[in-house]
Simulated assay, not measured.
Amino acid sequence: MILLKSGIDLLVPENGLLIWTALAFILVLFILSKFAWKPILNSLKERETGIADSLATAERVKAEMAQMKSENEALLAKAREERASLLKEARDTKDRIINEAKEQAKVEANKIIVEAQAAIQQQKMAALTDVKNQVGNLVIEVAEKVLRRELAGKAEQENYIKTLANEVKLN
């Protein structure tokens, strides 16, 4: 038969149970303190140290990243300045080359014009000389023909030669 105990009796343990429970607790406490607490405390310390190291590393990396960011910004600014400088230098060089090419073209054009004018003058002089020579030849031929007709006789020719000789001596 099962006797029913009152509600309060169920909450209050018996003395034997208390002793065995206390003994078991003390035994488990002794075993845990002897074998388990040191490794548990060591792993907790290691974990705490690892977390602290990780936080310090994170802070250091964060500081390095900030420094790298500022260095990158400085490098970008320097690169922009160099690019602007190179572009300006390239524009100046382009303008200088264009101006030099224009000046050289002008010099070459003037040289060609001077050479062409000299060639024209030379050809003009050659043509005038040729015309003078031809005119001179024609004049001599005409004069010769006229003189032959006028000076048909030998005596007339000799008188004319003497007259010309005297005129040449006077000049």
Score class of each variant (00 low, 15 high):
Leu10His: 09
Leu27Ser: 04
Leu18Val: 07
Ala127Thr: 09
Gly16Leu: 01
Ala126Glu: 10
Ala79Pro: 02
Ala58Phe: 14
Ala36Asn: 02
Glu141Asn: 11
Lys88Asn: 12
Leu10Ala: 05
Val131Asp: 08
Leu17Thr: 03
Asn133Phe: 09
Asn15Trp: 02
Leu29Tyr: 04
Glu115Met: 13
Leu41Glu: 10
Val107Lys: 08
Asn72Phe: 15
Asp53Gly: 11
Lys124Leu: 02
Ala118Leu: 13
Glu108Arg: 09
Ala127Glu: 13
Leu18Gln: 03
Ile120Pro: 01
Leu44Pro: 00
Lys34Glu: 02
Val131Gly: 02
Thr93Ser: 10
Leu17Met: 02
Ser43Asn: 12
Glu141Ser: 09
Val114Pro: 06
Leu138Phe: 14
Lys69Pro: 01
Pro13His: 01
Glu103Phe: 03
Val131Tyr: 07
Lys69Met: 10
Thr129Gln: 08
Val114Thr: 15
Glu100Tyr: 11
Lys94Trp: 09
Asn137Phe: 13
Arg96Cys: 03
Lys62Gly: 15
Ala24Trp: 04
Glu115Leu: 13
Ser85Leu: 10
Arg96Asp: 15
Lys38Leu: 09
Ile26Ala: 02
Ala52Pro: 04
Asp92Cys: 02
Lys45Leu: 11
Leu11Trp: 10
Gln121Trp: 06
Ile113Lys: 05
Ala66Phe: 06
Gln121Ser: 04
Glu108Asn: 12
Glu108Lys: 11
Glu46Pro: 01
Leu128Phe: 07
Gln117Met: 07
Gln121Cys: 04
Ala118Val: 14
Leu75Ala: 14
Ala90Tyr: 05
Glu103Asn: 07
Leu44Asn: 00
Asp130Pro: 03
Val107Asp: 06
Val131Thr: 12
Arg60Ile: 11
Ala63Ile: 14
Ala105Arg: 09
Ile113Arg: 08
Ile98Phe: 04
Phe30Lys: 00
Gly16Thr: 02
Asn99Ala: 11
Asn72Met: 15
Lys111Ile: 14
Asn72Leu: 15
Val135Met: 09
Lys102Ile: 12
Glu141Ile: 08
Val131Cys: 03
Glu46Trp: 11
Leu27Tyr: 06
Glu59Gly: 09
Asn15Met: 00
Leu32Asp: 00
Ile112Thr: 14
Gln117Glu: 10
Lys78Ile: 04
Leu138Glu: 13
Leu11Lys: 08
Ala22Glu: 02
Leu76Asp: 15
Ala24Ser: 05
Ser70Arg: 12
Trp37Asn: 01
Gly50Leu: 15
Ala79Ser: 15
Val139Asn: 04
Gln122Pro: 00
Met65Phe: 14
Asn137Met: 13
Leu29Glu: 00
Arg80Phe: 11
Ala90Ile: 04
Trp37Ala: 03
Ala58His: 13
Ser54Phe: 14
Leu44Cys: 05
Ala101Glu: 11
Asn42Ser: 08
Ser33Asp: 03
Ala116Ile: 09
Gln117Tyr: 07
Thr57Gly: 12
Leu29Pro: 00
Ile140Ser: 03
Trp20Glu: 07
Gly16Met: 01
Thr129Ser: 08
Glu73Ile: 13
Thr49Val: 12
Thr93Cys: 01
Val131Phe: 08
Ile19Arg: 00
Glu100Gly: 05
Met125Pro: 02
Thr129Val: 06
